[in-house]
Design a protein around this nucleic acid. Structure first.
Lengths: 198, 198
DNA sequence: GTCTATAAGAGGATAGAC
DNA sequence: GTCTATCCTCTTATAGAC
């Protein structure tokens, strides 16, 4: 899977950006682990910052493409089933690669001042995409009166995304994966108390 | 409240260590905001590292001293009331100074490699103190058969602390304070489903 | 593509004057 | 206590050889 200098650079850089953080990770350390001299990295990337954002975008892109590729969401099934499917698949996806989610959490919670502006733009770009996916299903729920529209569609979307992120964060921090059984019990508790309440 | 050079140094350093992180915060920046030259800081602290740990310990010490000072925990009342009181008071304390809790979360989740060893020791020292406080009450619950001892005391302690930290983390990340009403509903849901389950 | 060499600057920390 | 001056190291990034 990891072949070629560029792949190695990206692999090592991701690891160090996650563990040590952007500022504390230096080009020499990355290159030392890759097995090249620091100057060689500049053949692949114009700067440390470009390398970072290339990785940051890839992590987000992988996640969004996964969400968009969930077949159930395009099938003609009840939209509330779509909501729980999206929750289940998201938790499973994140469980399989907690490091990537921890990476996203790190740079969301503690953005380096040096790159904070671009980071916020990119964060908005990607979370907007995420919202779009959720938005379509929630809208379907409202249209088909599965959700009774006592609250605004926007509120439903926010609550749903907050619910998912909350449990992903829990997994990252406690480093314990949520089991399939738990997914359903968490979902029904959320569905009953938050989405259906008047 | 903030008078004297040392207080100013600690105030500014805390702010920058929280926002920019340990590595990205440099002595010159701290001193510039304080209004002194970098060399003057070394009159108060031997190193940047010493300054950091002095602040880190103070944040923890304030929290532990607050927990130890809760009167209800020393009174002769039912131990399950003590548990909910400790939860309520902790949430209130953290609500009043989310920045300090975010500081602790930052260095727990993403410890700088340069100081990781000392950080882990100190973290263990302070969380052991925290466990001690909880431990006393849980033991009282088990002794008085308020908790039915279907699980080990250690498990009860872990679950209780995890429960509290989970909600503090939620407040930090969502930046929304938990209301008094919510505290009780969260508590009873936790009490019934986690502590009393067989 | 990868190297050596090096520029240009930022960082932690110290010496010693006042 | 606070300053100026300075040391030494680390860092990003570039120039140009191979």
């Amino acid at each position: 899977m990891i072949s070629g200098t560029n792949d190695k650079i990206r692999y090592v850089a991701f690891k160090l950006f996650l563990e040590k953080g952007y500022e504390a990770t230096n080009v020499r350390d990355i290159c030392k682990e890759v097995g090249i001299k620091a100057s060689s990295l500049y053949f692949y990337y114009q700067s440390k910052q470009e390398l970072f954002f290339s990785i940051y975008d890839e992590v987000w892109n992988d996640k969004i493409r996964f969400l968009e590729s969930i077949e159930e969401l395009r099938q003609d099934i009840s939209p509330d089933i779509k909501l729980i499917t999206l929750f289940k698949k998201t938790v499973e996806y994140c469980s399989n690669d907690l490091a990537k989610q921890k990476f996203l959490l790190r740079y969301h919670l503690f953005p380096p001042q040096e790159i904070i502006k671009i980071l916020r733009e990119k964060y908005k770009f990607w979370t907007d995409k995420e919202s779009g996916i959720v938005s379509d299903i929630i809208q379907e729920c409202v249209d088909k009166k599965v959700l009774r529209c006592s609250r605004s569609t926007t509120d439903y979307i926010k609550d749903y995304i907050k619910f998912i992120n909350f449990h992903i964060t829990e997994m990252i921090i406690s480093n314990i994966k949520i089991s399939s059984n738990e997914i359903y019990s968490l979902w029904f508790s959320f569905w009953n108390s938050n989405l259906l309440k008047q």
